[in-house]
Amino acid sequence: MSDVEGHVLHGLLEETSGDIVIRIDRHGFIIHASANIAELGFDFAGALLLPHITDLAARDHAAYLGEHVAAVLAGRPQTGWAEFPVNESAGCNSSSSGHCARWYALSLRPMCDSRGIADGAMCLMRSVQQVRSLEGELHARAVTDPLTGLANRQAFCATLRRHLAHGGGQMIAVFAVDSMRALMMRYGQRTADEVLWGFAKFLETMALSGHELAQLDGERFAVLLPEMTSRSAREWCEDVVATFAGLASPASNHARSKGTHLTASAGLARVECTVDWTLREAELGLVLARAGGGRQVAVAGHRRAA
């Protein structure tokens, strides 16, 4: 490393405490790295071959990082930082459990020789894990119902759009606890919330592998039933409705005298046409089930949109 490069490197280290400073050659191989790169689990001291900058990234992000670095080395400045998770095999602590993904951002500044020809780059590598975690938390809040913890209507509609993009054909069910509004008017919002929370947990228990649950609004719940025929979907819904009535019945003997008995109904539909059409058909089925006295499963007539 030349005196000029060493001075630049020293200056960067002083200004970026906690960041990792890396010097790469014109091909992207790491010539030097600050000592704190060891925090990622990399030890270059005993390496027989120079590691490449892309060795720092997880396998599915290595190509992206390579393209970003190659563009800078070729004289095509890139706007912004390149963000990627570090290589898991080196970046995970062996004592930790589960999947480890620590995100970093990389910024490059081309270095030129005395003739002005690109001779590598100085790289600054900074942890963005906290930002990523915050973004993930904010996204989770945006697509999750705060009361039940289930996906909300926005998230469920996005799921339906993805299935429709691949042809659709799956079955969905829309559930609701019967007489929820009357229950809320009589016992208050807190009791209604407790009932909704309990029904959400009950649905999670009854759901089979691959089922996707969501809360559409204050009283309606949706379940996507992939890999189910219309008959098996109806049988599953009927089992849910009957089981819920059976579980609620023993605890509602006192409530019966007050005219309150918790039951649920469901409407079924096939994922087709559009998201709005699909949900409207399922919700129409729910209306028919409730009109029949509740504790039923109904399917709206197969009518195509004009």
Rank of each mutant, 00 (worst) to 15 (best):
V21Y: 07
I31G: 04
F44D: 01
I20A: 11
L49N: 06
T16V: 09
F42C: 00
G41L: 10
L49K: 08
S34T: 12
D25H: 04
T16F: 15
L49C: 05
D25A: 09
R26Q: 12
I37P: 03
D43W: 01
F29C: 09
A33N: 02
I22D: 04
L49G: 02
A33H: 04
T16W: 11
L48H: 12
G28Q: 06
H27Y: 12
I31Y: 03
H27D: 15
N36E: 05
I24K: 03
L48F: 06
T16S: 13
R26S: 14
L40N: 03
I37H: 01
F42V: 00
A35W: 06
S17G: 15
D43R: 01
I37C: 02
I20L: 14
A38P: 02
E15N: 13
S17I: 12
H27T: 14
F42R: 00
E15Y: 14
G41T: 05
I24R: 07
S34N: 09
S34M: 07
A47Y: 02
A47G: 01
V21F: 09
T16H: 15
S17M: 11
I24N: 03
G28L: 09
E15T: 15
A33F: 00
G41R: 06
N36M: 01
L40C: 08
E15C: 13
R26C: 06
D19C: 10
I22H: 03
A35Y: 07
F29E: 11
N36F: 01
V21I: 15
S17Y: 08
L40W: 13
A33D: 01
G18S: 10
L40F: 11
S17R: 14
I31A: 05
I37G: 00
L40G: 04
L40H: 04
I20G: 08
V21W: 08
I37S: 00
A47N: 03
I24C: 05
A47F: 00
G46R: 12
I24L: 07
T16G: 09
L48W: 07
G28P: 07
E15R: 15
I37W: 01
I24T: 05
E39V: 10
I20S: 12
L49H: 09
L49A: 11
D19R: 09
A35N: 11
S17Q: 14
S34D: 07
A38V: 11
F29S: 13
N36S: 02
D43M: 01
D25T: 06
L49W: 04
F44N: 02
H27K: 14
A33K: 00
F44V: 02
A45R: 07
N36V: 02
N36L: 00
D43Y: 00
A45V: 05
D43A: 05
L49I: 12
H27P: 03
H32V: 13
A38S: 15
D43L: 02
I24A: 06
E39M: 08
F44C: 02
L49D: 10
G28W: 06
N36W: 01
L40Q: 11
F44Q: 03
G46L: 08
V21H: 14
G18W: 04
G28M: 11
I22Q: 02
D43H: 02
I31L: 13
I20N: 09
E15S: 14
A38H: 10
F42E: 01
